[in-house]
Amino acid sequence: MRPVLKFGAAAAVLGIATVAALSAWPVGVEPEPIELVGDIERGAYLARASGCIACHTNFEDGGAPLSGGAPLPTDFGTFYPPNITTDPDFGIGAWTVEDFARAVRQGIGPDGAPYYPTFTYPFYADFSDQDIADLWAAFQTVPPVAENAPSHDVVFPFDQRWGLKLWRAAYLDDPATEPLDGKSDVWNRGRELVRGATHCGACHTERNLAGARVLDAVFAGNDALPGGNDAPSIRSPDLIAGGWTVSNLAYALRTGITPSGDAFGGSMGEVVMYGTSFLTPSDLEAMAIYLLDSDVAGIEMADAAIPHATEGEAD
């Protein structure tokens, strides 16, 4: 056999072996049993904050809540969020709470396959067992929908899920949601929400060629969102320069109305409509205080400025 052919054959064998090894390479960790009793109302609140309804419901086509199917066009192809209703065949009705915990916190399905990072699981990694139990209890109240969401339409080589294991090794990071010493409880609550459940950095942070967030550009804005949208910088100096205050930012997150009287459009409009508009005044204030880095306890913000607030706290 000629040297070139030998080299080609060897390379092919090596490539096949590498793919096989990556396919067999386990990722994540097996979750501990979760036996806590979940609070349905708190779980529903956390689901709203986390964008579950907004992402997993195809509103344009009149889809049932959480039945999936809303297209997300990207440079890598079009992704379709799955059905996460209680249907046992097409949704998550056959899952255990541990399966659910692994999916939400680690981005790994019951079969051990990693999810694409269009699912914002990296922001949920610090959810507690009680958070998971609450979410699980809330999801059990969702009516089943016996309908499969479309399969992802992703171009090669991004359709090869084993490659996501390399992506995770290179780019998966833990969310910075832990409280910081020297900061108030309300500032730390805002940090927990902004960097965790509400995952503001998913849109307001630039992505690299691999689709990973550029971590030294967190909150600095992104002009290449799916669907041709863009997200401005939400760093404190830029917000302040733009005339944002704790009161008007909290109000905008509740109503979608900006200080100029304009309304949020595009993906931010959906974030407010299906997510932050359901948050309590205290959580909206906390988010605004954190984003503006205005850590002054007891900043005056009349509840009347945020009408029809959801009753109860998430803590």
Rank of each mutant, 00 (worst) to 15 (best):
I108L: 13
A176F: 03
A24K: 08
G196K: 02
A286P: 08
N229M: 10
N83K: 06
V142L: 04
A54W: 04
E147Y: 01
K6W: 10
S294Q: 13
T280A: 15
T280L: 01
I16N: 05
P157Q: 05
P3Q: 06
S294F: 09
D230I: 01
Y290T: 01
R48E: 06
L193H: 05
V272E: 00
R168Q: 13
I306S: 05
D283F: 14
G15Q: 11
C55P: 09
F156D: 04
D99G: 02
P150Q: 11
P150N: 05
Y124M: 12
P237T: 06
G269W: 01
E147N: 03
A125M: 15
L215H: 14
S184W: 06
T310S: 11
Y171W: 14
R48C: 02
P31R: 09
D315F: 15
D99I: 06
N248D: 14
L46N: 08
P88I: 11
G190F: 03
G256N: 12
A252T: 13
T118F: 10
V218D: 05
G211V: 04
G242K: 03
A309M: 10
L72T: 08
A170R: 12
D134R: 02
G43D: 03
L66S: 03
R189A: 15
L22T: 03
P157R: 02
R168K: 14
I84T: 03
G69D: 04
V155Q: 09
Y115F: 14
A302V: 02
A103G: 07
A113M: 12
A297Y: 14
P157D: 04
G261P: 01
P81Y: 03
D238Y: 05
Q140H: 03
E178C: 05
F119A: 14
L164R: 10
L5D: 09
L22G: 05
D126H: 13
D75Q: 15
R161D: 10
P150D: 07
P179A: 07
E206R: 15
S282F: 09
V145P: 00
G109C: 01
S236H: 09
Y116I: 07
S128F: 04
A252G: 09
T120F: 13
T118S: 11
G261Q: 04
W95I: 02
R168P: 00
A224H: 12
G227E: 11
N208I: 13
G196N: 07
V272L: 04
L209A: 15
D75R: 13
A21Y: 13
A210I: 00
A146K: 03
G69F: 06
A288I: 10
V4C: 01
A101G: 08
P157F: 04
T85S: 08
L180W: 07
S277P: 02
L249M: 12
R191P: 00
A288K: 11
G243L: 07
W25F: 14
V97H: 01
A138R: 03
I16R: 06
G77Q: 05
H152V: 02
L46A: 05
T57P: 02
A224Q: 13
G8V: 15
L253E: 02
D159G: 12
N188M: 09
V142Y: 01
H56D: 01
D131C: 04
G243I: 08
